[in-house]
Amino acid sequence: MSNIDLTLQIWRQKNSDALGKLETYTLDKISTDMSFLEMLDVLNEKLTMEGIEPVAFDHDCREGICGMCGAVINGVAHGPEKETTLCQLHMRHFKTGDVLVIEPFRSRAFPIKKDLVVDRSAFDKIIQAGGYVSVNTGGTPDGNAIPISSHIAELAMDAAACIGCGACVASCPNGAAMLFTSAKISQLCLLPQGHAERKKRALSMVETMDKEGFGNCTNLRECEAVCPKSISIRNIARLNREFVRAAFSEG
């Protein structure tokens, strides 16, 4: 364990309407065992004691599963480590003298609420448009009534691992939400439970995705590269197939 000294440039913005700018702070003697968010905690304690409003940032589980945290560190969503959320990024990946530029996830569909806090409710809207199997509680058949090969279950699980953090949108030069949308559509079109409404689902989820202001996918693969859960763009290929099939045969 050792300590490092850092310079931070953090995006400060009072609220959605205000103009924001990067502010510079220095932090000394940061233990390399800290997580990135703990480093921000330390900064916030310091700012508080200096009478400055602390940096607002979203976070919750701090174990990489809730999808609440996220920021762009030196241009990379969730920072330099692969398959890692911001809360699981540790300071040992940085060294003394590093300048870290910390910005919120930016996208037209994710308005900034304050500092690093953004509004990702557009993702919820996409799910609400059809990211479910329409079953009511009760009256469902026995869990083993439909056999599902373990291979298919695993593929569905690969897609279902999405934590909805929004890094894919933040890193996509076009601000597209294809990786997110395709992950849910893949999960449900792979599993037999989701087959009954697969066409309607693909059409309405894509329609909502477009309406919410996300950009167009141009197969740049940035999303896949920053995804903390390594969701593959194979899911996007699957979504494309689902969508075409639905568009040409639904109704």
Partner: peptide, 27 residues
């Protein structure tokens, strides 16, 4: 697509870093 996406791209980040290879052609 270019015009729609440019609205998004227009220097979003103070520092922009591409994580992916094969970006000369794609971008």
């Amino acid at each position: 697509l270019f015009l729609q996406n440019r609205k998004e791209t227009a220097s979003r980040y103070a520092v922009s870093t591409k994580v992916c290879e094969n970006t000369l052609a794609s971008s």
